[in-house]
Nucleic acid binder design. Structure first.
Lengths: 226, 226, 226, 226
DNA sequence: CATGAATGAGGTTTCATTCAT
DNA sequence: TATGAATGAAACCTCATTCAT
């Protein structure tokens, strides 16, 4: 996976441990100052490591960028891809509601990473960028699968499920990217509700279903941070 | 507006001319390499100016960033804000259709700028960033006005017009930001049609209206800037 | 020739001037401390330039190494190749005497460079190294030409002129390389006389000729560079 | 001798063993990359030791340089100095032939070391350098002894035996130093023959002796080390 | 007004050496 | 005895900005 990243250590456990440490340090400084404006001195301090130690576990500054972005996207994809298996016996409509709620809350949890990814993916070399974009595409694919299931089940009517799935995903991202705008206008849960209803109205065959199950919107306790 | 930007020239016309020249040069290099990775030598070359001349008309590298982003957003806002005055006597639904078509085409024309703005706004100091974000908010406001008009006219039913307007705007941006994903899936006109129908389905009081006027998709000539 | 070396200046005269300055600075520090042990701060100081200025006229530290070595070898080759044209109407034997005298004095003038070249050529990348070695081979070729002329004229008898020419050249170099040994044992002029007689004895058809013209050792003015 | 080199071990046999191991490792990496461009990680790997172990038996990187060069020169001097005792009852001329043959073959065996010594002796501190140069001078002295014997025996006529001895030795070295030139022009045995005849022609009282014994060039088996 | 040479602080990265285990 | 993780000074190089011309 990232076996091609330089390290001077042969102790895989240690390498994993230290890279985690680096990712956490990177989260602090990258997100605050941006990739190019963060220097390795600050990076090292944020990781509670010496500069030398940093370079034992990582080949370059860009490697840290990749480590950081990839880690975040992997976590996200992991949850997203595990989503359907956690669904009980519910309808596509309900599943989609749950999916949106889950995804948007995940984004809210990792707001900074999401924003950072939109800003700094360009800094990666083309291989790394490809992997990052692939990971991003997987979220859309997971959502699209759900939509197609709903179409087959006769609950949804959708011309282009890819675009709709893409909308669902990126409107989630926007909660992080445009928080300077949205935070002043609504809460996360309101945002989730608005978007869910908008989307359902646009795709439901029987529009009454949308309003029908609205009652349970608040049934689940919030998992939002802060 | 930008009277606080340093210049050694007292000839306002010349200042304006040179700054245009700089903005056009910046467009080439900033978009290709990103702000931090572009140096002033490349900048000067792209502007067909000497480095010294650059600093006659601009106080710092960051000034150029601001000039570039602000110019793009101004052009956009200008068109957006002039939109309603160019409307003839048409219904809110038709107006919204036109708005989306116009806005998305504008974004398509200035794809690079849009992407760049998402990536580099962070690099601005807080004053400049505020102005950029305000300009961005104006687009949403213009769209929101349209929506509220439709609600008052009884054509739309919308819980939170701000969020819907925001959706319309950012889904336009996504055409530029996520072109690596979307370009492979659909053309601009398809994207416009999909999004327009989705949005209308979600907000139209009388759903039948949505499909009804699709015929005129290509009637209006492009209003895209350059 | 070295048109592929990076510079940020477009003023060729200035580039040439500054590169000369750099070569002279390099001569001081490289020769004293060796290439790898000289840092760019010392280099800049020795050149009476700032580090930044250095990098205006040169792309890297290694470029300076090449500039320095190449300059020295060019000067040498220039004199060596111009040698035959400066010869009057003299015999091959006399010409060889003159050649050796000239070449060894040139080496003596540029002792440090000669030593340095033996030590640091390895540090060059393969292209630069090739050019340096080619320049070095030209000296041998010039000497070999002289020998073959003597053979044709019936004055010399030589099995393998290349090897003999090579001997003449490298024994000259040894005056610089092994000065720690030779300086204590003889003067340059003694060294020249010894080597000249040795060589002539080994190649002259009529051995009496060797001793015959020894008297004029000091007749020709030095052709040493600088 | 090298009692002043730091070690943390008190087991002299082990120290000797490990230092041999280090010398062999050094041979691989130093010769390939040069002293300054070899780092201690590579050094340790080449020695099949850990970095820590290295520093148990050696005080610094420079110590290894000294160990390596000194070992090579000692081996050489050892053979050279033992040379006369291995001579049977032969003439000075024959002895010189044998000496040259032996010495040049030794150089050929240890080409890389010879080249390396010319390049990196400067890196040693002055004490170590002195010892290295002394060892190098011993070769010349041994050869000179041979020459003086020939002079006394009336076979050679030599003005300055030191310089001639020096020539013999350094022309041997040149086989290693300038192999990029010589290898393309002749084989080792040809080189030996050419140089031997040249030298003899220059010093033999009775020139006919030179050609006379050429027939036995291949009679003695190699005495090369390793 | 226009130029671009010059500056030097600060960027990323390397590496000899130490020392806790 | 043996290990290799950790250190941080110092290496090379870049670049926004100034200012003499």
């Amino acid at each position: 996976m990232n076996d091609d990243m330089r390290t001077y250590s042969h102790d895989e456990t240690l390498v994993k441990l230290r890279r985690m440490q680096i990712i956490q340090g990177a989260a602090k400084v990258f997100v605050e100052k941006g990739y190019d404006r963060t220097n390795m001195r600050e990076m090292a301090a944020a990781c509670n490591m010496s500069i030398g130690a940093l370079y034992h576990y990582v080949g370059s500054k860009e490697d840290i960028l990749y480590l950081f972005i990839n880690d975040g996207l992997s976590r996200l994809s992991e949850v997203v891809e595990g989503f359907s298996s956690r669904l009980g016996d519910i309808s596509p409509t309900e599943a989609l509601r749950e999916f949106i709620k889950m995804y948007y809350r995940l984004i809210d949890d990792g707001q900074n990473l999401c924003l950072f990814t939109y800003q700094e993916t360009k800094g990666l070399d083309s291989n790394a960028r490809r992997r990052v974009l692939d990971a991003a595409a997987r979220d859309v694919a997971a959502c699209e699968k759900l939509l197609r299931w709903g179409v087959e089940a006769g609950e949804f009517k959708i011309d282009n499920p890819t675009v709709v799935a893409h909308n669902i995903i990126v409107l989630g991202h926007m909660w992080a990217i445009r928080r300077w705008f949205l935070r002043k206008r609504c809460t996360l849960e309101e945002y989730i509700r608005e978007q869910t209803e908008s989307i359902l109205k646009a795709i439901l065959v029987d529009t009454r279903a949308a309003a029908g199950s609205r009652k349970d919107t608040e049934r689940h306790p919030s998992v939002g941070v802060k």
